[in-house]
Design a protein around this nucleic acid. Sequence first.
DNA 1: GAGTTTGAAACT
DNA 2: CAGTTTCAAACTC
Length: 226
Amino acid sequence: MESASLCAAGKDTIFQAATNLEEAAKLVLSGNQVASWGSKTKKPCNCTRSQCLKLYCDCFANGDLCNNCNCSNCYNNTEHGLERFKAVKACLDRNPDAFQPKIEKGKTGDVTPRHHKGCNCKRSGCFKNYCECYEAKITCSSVCKCVGCKNVKSLDFKSLMNMQCYLDSRSINLFCISGEVVEATCACLLAQAEEAEKEGCSTCLAEHRIIEEFGKCLTQILHPKV
DNA sequence: GAGTTTGAAACT
DNA sequence: CAGTTTCAAACTC
């Protein structure tokens, strides 16, 4: 029984290693093609210490060879194929998804792309290019572990005016919603925030839940009987 | 352009 | 797996 499971585990390990090796070979080959074609326009890197063989290097992380970069002591080229292959394999051993795109398209029917791993920003508020989500021009999601996130969906003035046009057609004035309604809405949002805090949700997730709650409140205002 | 800040990746 | 270090890009002055 135990030896059987050990055997299965061994098989898995070998299979994973083989997969990584195959993936590494593919990446090395694709990199060679990019270098020889030289057609792909990409941002040049400026690496000095990583030899462009670690994921710190954008070229390497994207599976590209360095081409017209400003890097020094670069090994991410055809002359150092073996070193590059070893580096790719080492990355894949650490993380089999290391060379997968970080931004995944939303599931079928969901048009919102999101960061695969999410960000971990603490000081930028996810509102500067330090944040991988912000840099990719997408909002943070529930997979993010960021603190003080400002990179969330928000209503802009145009959306608000469009909403008012819709409400006008129904003789509802968004800007004249009674104090009672505002108070009730705030109470709902506060309750949602407290619940999120009690459940230990991340700031980002809590914000998402509050926004969702706000959406529900708006629906209630527009369709009081629903 | 030099120095600082930032967060991902790598390392321990 | 958490804490620390290294790294290169983003940012500020």
